[in-house]
């Protein structure tokens, strides 16, 4: 899993076109263009991120009745959102499913507005993971709203008016799934779970400062000081490690 995820991440943008094309070709009844929404490049920043562990036991039909998918199937849906731009980037992998996709929507892979244990309408339709077969299927890229799903209720597309700000406001009210001909209610499904975005700020700089050469007031000088700290730290490895342990056990914190 990790190997696949690493490779996919690093080639996600390159692979977008291929995955989208494959998804469009494979969708049942998708005579119209596969997407009204715009496929876009990855933005430079994100306002939120979500992950989904999709499993067959969580599948419900349109009436909210448990309708399990095939045993052994699973899916991971990783979403990164920039709600200011209404862009959602997706990295989807499904395994253990077979046969073609099937859905009355324009694709068969969706985010539904559906809380745990509830059914609900699709709000976003993603290119179906490819290739169709018994092996892992993947789909990666970024979509920008306004979104359409191809499902029309009371004359209105279920994606109409939906924005990613709504998803961020109550992410637990949304689920992701994919539908196949063998399991039209869904092969796998899971609830969105919010995860952090960006790096983790786990340092105060005290070790760098303690080892640094005297700082200069300009930014270039500050950088030089930090690099110098790196060099000196090399020499002070054993001593520094010992100090670290003592400080930790003494509960020293800044």
């Amino acid at each position: 899993m990790s190997i696949q995820r690493t490779a996919r991440r690093r080639t996600g943008i390159i692979g977008l076109g291929g995955a989208a094309l494959a998804g469009g070709v494979l969708v049942f009844g998708a005579a119209a263009p596969a997407h009204a929404e715009t496929e876009v490049a990855e933005p430079s920043s994100f306002t939120s991120a979500f992950t989904v562990m999709a499993t067959p036991d969580q599948v419900l039909n349109a009436d909210g009745v448990a309708t399990p998918g095939p045993a052994g199937a699973s899916g991971t849906f990783d979403f990164r959102v920039n709600s200011d731009l209404d862009i959602i980037c997706y990295d989807i992998t499904v395994t253990g499913i077979s046969g073609d996709y099937m859905s009355p929507a324009k694709t068969a892979t969706h985010i539904h507005q559906a809380a745990a244990g509830k059914a609900g309408p699709p709000r976003i339709a993603f290119p179906n993971p490819a290739p169709v077969g018994d092996g892992p299927r993947t789909s990666s890229g970024c979509l920008q709203g306004p979104f359409t799903t191809g499902i029309v209720n009371n004359g209105v597309d279920t994606g109409d008016g939906f924005t990613l700000a709504q998803l961020e406001a109550d992410s637990a009210a949304f689920a992701a799934d994919t539908h196949t001909a063998a399991n039209p209610a869904g092969a796998v499904r899971g609830q969105l779970s919010q995860v952090p975005v960006g790096g983790v700020q786990t340092g105060g700089g005290g070790a760098a400062s303690a080892l640094a050469v005297p700082a200069t007031p300009d930014a270039a000088g500050a950088t030089a000081g930090a690099v110098a700290a790196a060099a000196i730290g090399v020499v002070g490895l054993g001593l520094a490690a010992g100090v670290a342990l003592k400080r930790r056990r003494d509960g020293i914190a800044g």
């Binding site: 899993m1 991120a49 992950t51 990783d78």
Partner: peptide, 22 residues
């Protein structure tokens, strides 16, 4: 984000701290 926090069917752990230049 996906590699660190993304869903998995396996039981794994990530340990995170800072490194590099301050």
């Amino acid at each position: 984000t996906g590699e660190v926090f993304g869903a998995l069917l396996d039981d794994e752990v990530r340990l995170i701290t800072c490194t590099g230049l301050f």
